[in-house]
Structure formats: C-alpha cells, structure tokens
Simulated assay, not measured.
Amino acid sequence: MIRYDSREYWVSLIRMSLSRFFILHALHLRPLHGYEISRQVASFTNGCCAPTEGSLYPLLRDMEESGILSVAVQVVSGRERKVYTLTEKGEQAYQVAAQAWGEAARYVLEAVAEESHV
C-alpha cells in the first residue's frame, strides 16, 4: 500500500523524475561519461537527485535504445569508458522536458504560495 502521507514516497517519486531531466540537462551542456553525469547531476541538485550507479546505467541504456543518446567508447589510461552525447532527438527531448518541468515547477510554487496565504 502506498503511503501518500510519507515524505519518503514523495521524495523518491520526485527524485526519480528529476534525475532523468538533470541527466538530459548535463548532456545538453556537453558529452560526458557515466561517472561525470552522476557528478554533474549531484552538483546541479546539491546531491538531491544524483542517480546511483545501479539506476544510472540502465537508464542510459534505455535512452540510447530510444535514440536520444549516442555512445562512443574512449580509451583513457588503457581503460575503456563510454561517453554519452545527446542526439538531435535527445536535444528535442531535452527542450520538451525543460518546458514541461518549468511549467510544473511554476504551478507547484503557485500552489504552495497560495497555501501559505490561506
């Protein structure tokens, strides 16, 4: 049973959704490898929405299969690492996500502001 009165429920739901947006945002700025993506998202959100390794790589694989990311393998110090880049379709997805999150954030802030004036 979902505990709608649980802060953990809402935080988890919000973090899961926002981490997807911030992954796109990080890659919108520049191509990155997985660890850099996680660090960037943590930086953008003060650690709030940083994806774990266990959640990041399946999500990146899904985004790649959806055609919004391309992947190139780089060899650094004898080790291979995957560098992720937004495709044109990914840039479009980022723009749509940014607009949707901007609208949603505005509505949430308005609702919370109304509540404090009641």
Score class of each variant (00 low, 15 high):
M1Y: 03
M1N: 13
M1V: 09
Y4T: 09
Y4C: 00
Y4W: 15
Y4E: 04
D5F: 13
R7A: 15
R7N: 10
W10P: 06
V11Q: 14
V11D: 07
L13F: 15
L13M: 11
L13N: 11
I14A: 15
I14H: 05
I14Y: 08
R15I: 08
M16K: 11
S17D: 14
L18M: 12
S19D: 04
R20E: 13
R20T: 04
F22K: 12
L24W: 08
L24M: 15
L24A: 07
H25V: 12
A26C: 14
L27T: 06
L27R: 02
L27A: 02
L29T: 13
L29V: 14
L29C: 07
R30P: 01
R30F: 09
P31A: 11
P31I: 01
P31S: 13
L32W: 00
H33P: 07
G34K: 00
G34S: 10
Y35R: 14
E36R: 15
I37C: 14
I37Q: 12
I37T: 05
R39E: 14
R39C: 07
V41S: 02
V41F: 01
F44Y: 15
F44L: 10
C48L: 15
C49S: 10
P51C: 10
T52L: 11
T52A: 11
E53H: 14
E53N: 13
S55I: 09
S55R: 12
L56I: 06
L56G: 02
Y57S: 10
P58F: 15
P58I: 14
L59T: 15
L60D: 00
L60H: 02
L60I: 03
R61E: 10
D62Q: 10
E65N: 09
S66E: 04
G67F: 01
G67E: 03
G67H: 01
L69K: 01
L69H: 05
S70A: 05
V71A: 04
V71L: 05
V71C: 05
A72Q: 13
V73C: 07
V73G: 02
V76C: 05
V76F: 12
V76N: 09
V76I: 14
S77P: 01
S77E: 15
G78F: 13
R79N: 10
R79F: 13
R79Q: 15
R81W: 03
R81S: 05
K82F: 12
V83A: 07
V83F: 00
Y84W: 11
T85E: 14
L86Q: 03
L86P: 00
L86V: 06
T87N: 06
E88A: 00
K89N: 03
K89D: 10
E91A: 08
E91Y: 08
A93C: 07
Q95H: 13
V96P: 00
V96E: 03
A97D: 03
A97T: 05
A98R: 09
A98E: 08
A98F: 04
W101P: 01
W101S: 00
A104S: 02
A104W: 07
A105C: 04
A105H: 05
Y107V: 09
V108W: 04
V108G: 02
V108E: 07
V108S: 05
L109V: 05
L109R: 04
L109P: 00
E110M: 08
A111Y: 03
A111S: 12
A113M: 01
A113R: 13
A113S: 08
E115L: 04
E115C: 00
E115T: 04
S116T: 11
S116E: 01
S116M: 03
H117Y: 09
H117I: 02
H117S: 06
V118C: 06
